[in-house]
């Protein structure tokens, strides 16, 4: 990797990191808590009993940070969860790219 490419690579990673973290910190405060398109469609057109059943059904497996939150930490936990996810994606994207490329 020549010097310019190396410097560019670092700049790109830094840009992704900054944009990702800034959005992650703002998201819990700015994001709408209204249901998304799919859920809202289901709420509107599925009969109420079936919808309630769907809403209450447990996922196939539980996740460590459901709904982008950390239990007991409120908004701060939401910021933390999304920041962790963003950092994880940066590492995963880079790692998978490097591993596949060999």
């Amino acid at each position: 990797m020549n010097k310019k490419t190396n410097a560019d690579a670092k700049k790109i990673l830094l840009a992704g990191l900054i944009i990702g973290v800034v959005i992650s910190v703002l998201a819990p405060f700015l994001a709408s808590s209204d249901p998304d398109g799919l859920e809202s469609a289901a709420e509107g057109i599925v009969d109420p009993a079936t919808f309630a059943e769907l809403e209450e059904s447990e996922p196939f497996m539980s996740s460590p940070m459901p709904d982008y939150s950390i239990e007991g930490f409120g908004k701060l936990g939401e910021v933390g969860a999304i920041v962790i996810g963003t950092l994880l994606m940066l590492v995963l994207g880079y790692g998978v790219g490097k591993i596949i490329k060999g």
């Binding site: 990797m1 490419t5 190396n6 560019d8 690579a9 670092k10 790109i12 990673l13 840009a15 992704g16 990191l17 944009i19 990702g20 973290v21 959005i23 992650s24 703002l26 998201a27 700015l30 994001a31 709408s32 808590s33 209204d34 249901p35 998304d36 398109g37 809202s40 982008y68 999304i82 996810g85 963003t86 950092l87 994606m89 940066l90 590492v91 995963l92 994207g93 880079y94 998978v96 790219g97 490097k98 490329k101």
Partner: peptide
Amino acid sequence: DLKIPLLAALAAAIFAIQAMNIPIGMGTS
């Protein structure tokens, strides 16, 4: 060497922006 960091940066930015639900009215985001 440039597309690997681009992939990583896009993965991070797209993950974050997916957490940003925008209200569109009708009780939906």
